[in-house]
Simulated scan of single mutants.
Amino acid sequence: MRNLHKIKLLYEKYLNRTATHEEVEELFMLLRDRNQFQHIHNIMEDEWERNDIDFSVENLSWEKVRSEWPTEQKISDVREMPIEKHAIWSLKIRKIVAVAAGVLIAGMMLWWWTKTNTKEYRTGFGETMEIVLSDGSRVLLNANSKMTWNTNWQNIQERTVQLEGEAFFEVSHQRMPVNNSSPDQKDSISLMPFQVITSDLSVNVLGTSFNVASRRQKTDVFLKSGEVLLVAKPPLPRSKNDEKKTAGPSLAKHMDSIYLTPGDHITYSGITRALERHEEKLPDEPTSWVDGFLVYENEKLETVLQELKDIYGKSFIMEDSTMLSRQVDLGLPYEDWYTVSELMSLSLEIEMEENNSEITVKKLEK
């Protein structure tokens, strides 16, 4: 509370242009606490109302500020105003500038908080990374992937991951108290949500294990155990067969949702809005890489090569394009590229000529 009072005093001095350089620095230091943002918002609104400024943070735009700013014609009109009106107009301009400056400070601090309260993990081609998050959840990050974890999860009571690439998650249970005025539910508890966000959708879970791959403008989700709720950014396509597994009302405007149960495997593209359900030949095929293998059963060679490109960063040129539709069965160790390419050549009876990261695939001449 003492800090909040200090912030109010410093902010008022900032608006009045009486703050020293040291006091502005102190204001920024105090604003580092993300939990103060709502209080700061309230302080700003109180200050604006006290100065008779009709303004809402939600409606702030530079267009509004510019519309209130005098043009050359307006400036000349101001010069011809009586002194009293001129002073009122100048005060109005100063207040508008103060509002914009105040929001700019809050925005800068929000950016600062976002950058300093996240931790980023990256993998290169051909490597994986085992990660234990601060909440106890375990993640295996696949090759050529990036994951960002919000380390402030305890304060905001929400666990959030941003994912580009592929990862396997084993989410831990984290309990949090429920604020409920009902006497019989006063001491009840709930599980803290865990959310994985990709460019196409968000995977919302409580405690479960699942695989998420976000590549080539689509997201692939395989649920191994537990239950997850997928929330898509554009609406999900609906069918009668999906009614039992699809949430009734939309969770938010322009969004829709679908539940997955163990064994469910879907691919969704936010661009094409195409939803595909997969019937797995092998129960754990989508997560075979977690155990150190790349397993493909009756899969198109084109699909295999796409995944190998994602993992190892290789580009493939087919001497005969009809080979891409060939159905193949492959079991490859998740090893270095040399081992993988040698086993592929032997198993598929093909020749692979490599030039830097570009590989030409040919049929083996008999």
Rank of each mutant, 00 (worst) to 15 (best):
N144K: 01
A98V: 09
N35P: 08
F222N: 01
T339W: 07
D256A: 09
E170N: 09
G331P: 11
E49V: 13
V161E: 00
E130G: 10
L201V: 05
I317K: 11
G248R: 11
L229C: 15
R215S: 05
S67I: 10
D46E: 14
W62S: 13
R79L: 15
N298V: 02
M352K: 05
R175D: 12
A247D: 13
H278Y: 09
R277C: 09
T114H: 12
F55N: 04
L308E: 00
M176T: 04
T71H: 03
T272R: 05
D184M: 14
G124H: 14
A143P: 05
N150H: 11
M352Y: 07
D329T: 10
V132G: 07
K92G: 12
M176K: 08
M176W: 06
N204F: 03
I359H: 00
W289Q: 01
K363G: 12
Y121G: 03
E307C: 04
I96V: 15
D77V: 10
A98N: 06
I43E: 06
V212M: 03
W153L: 00
R175W: 13
I197W: 05
G102L: 01
L236E: 01
N3C: 03
S199L: 12
E354K: 11
S202Y: 04
T322D: 10
I197V: 08
E353F: 15
Y334C: 05
K6I: 10
D264F: 02
E335T: 05
E243P: 08
E25Q: 14
V57K: 13
Q73R: 15
E307S: 06
P249H: 10
S341Q: 14
W48K: 05
H21G: 13
L133S: 02
L346C: 14
W89P: 04
L30E: 02
E302Y: 04
P286N: 03
I350M: 06
Y296I: 01
D256W: 04
E307H: 05
N204D: 07
D135V: 01
L364Y: 06
T116H: 08
S357D: 15
L346A: 15
N179P: 11
L229S: 08
L260H: 03
M81K: 05
S181L: 15
N356V: 09
T219Q: 04
L223E: 00
N356R: 12
R175K: 12
K64P: 07
K85W: 15
D264T: 02
Q174A: 11
I266F: 06
E365Q: 13
R138D: 07
L10D: 00
Q195A: 13
Y14V: 09
L230A: 03
R277G: 07
T246V: 14
L4D: 14
V24L: 11
G207H: 02
N16A: 15
T116M: 06
L343N: 08
I105D: 04
M108Q: 14
D310Q: 03
E285V: 06
I75M: 11
D264S: 06
R66S: 12
S239H: 05
L230F: 06
N51T: 06
D256H: 05
N355G: 08
E68P: 06
I156E: 10
K309S: 11
F210K: 00
G136E: 00
E49H: 14
D54E: 15
Q327S: 11
